Computed example of a mutant assay.
Amino acid sequence: MAYEKNRIITIANQKGGVGKTTTAINLATALAAIGERVLIVDLDPQGNASTGLGIERKNRKLSSYDLLIGTHTVDETAVETAVPNLSIIPSTLDLLGLEMEISQKTDRAFRLKNALASPEALGYSYVLVDCPPSFNLLTMNAMAAAHSILVPLQCEFFALEGLSQLLETISQVRRSLNPTLDIQGIVLTMFDSRNNLAQQVVSDVRTHLGEKVYHTLIPRNVRVSEAPSYGKPAILYDLKCAGSQAYLQLASEVIQRERQRKAA
């Protein structure tokens, strides 16, 4: 069976504040650190992934908006970061107007997929797409382009309720846009071992979704929260902190799952 040259993983959850961008930045950095060539596509108009990797707004001459509009290519929009092997297509507020501009186009949900089919995009081992915290045309593009979805899930009371909505959305995308879309895995974030509720959420999610849930738990960690304000991934800001170590462990799990998938 032939496999794609790159692996496109969309990081999505319709709920905000669950660690999507933090996961995108630090997972990408960890993958790059072990020699993988990685591209982040920032599809959130807020542009937090771009800021968190030190790409200042004034330096975002081209962005994911230009890629989706079709005026520029992956090579033209991608910017190298301070992390070797890691590039990002940054986001700007222009993305807010994208839906209105392309809503009547027949390929409106496949703009990202078409852009990432280019030879230069195939040169990356992994493409991670950071989504906005809502289901809109940007998220549809991300899911239509992806081979799989990675879902960050906060260890809190309403986690399972939000997850069931997201799983239904993924089912809809499979039916209408991307029949081979798979769930890469669920990563539990902001875990506090002293909190009984967090322990219960972990237990419930593992009971419901079994092997789809990564073994790695991403802890609630001050150093991880501080890192974006310095324009650095936590792994560069403080490699030894518990959060950075957890993301390195998560990267190891992601690669292990990819090996198993290819061997299947």
Rank of each mutant, 00 (worst) to 15 (best):
Y3V: 11
E4N: 14
I8V: 15
I9F: 07
V18K: 06
V18Y: 10
N26L: 03
N26Q: 01
L27Y: 07
A28Q: 03
A32H: 04
L39T: 07
L39E: 10
G47N: 05
G47A: 03
G47K: 02
S50T: 10
L53G: 09
E56S: 15
E56C: 02
K58E: 14
N59Q: 14
R60K: 13
K61S: 13
H72D: 10
E76G: 01
L93K: 13
L96T: 12
E99Q: 12
F110M: 14
K113V: 05
Y124E: 03
S125E: 14
V127Q: 01
F135Y: 10
A144R: 03
S148R: 09
V151G: 02
L160V: 13
E161K: 15
E161H: 12
Q165T: 10
T169S: 13
R174I: 02
R175C: 01
L181F: 07
L181E: 07
I183P: 07
I183R: 06
G185A: 09
S193W: 00
N195R: 13
L197I: 15
Q199I: 11
Q199W: 02
V201G: 04
V202W: 05
H208Q: 14
G210C: 10
E211C: 01
T216L: 06
T216Q: 08
E226R: 03
G231D: 02
A234I: 08
A234D: 00
A234M: 09
L236F: 08
Y237P: 04
K240G: 09
Y247G: 00
A251V: 05
E253M: 08
E253R: 05
K262H: 10
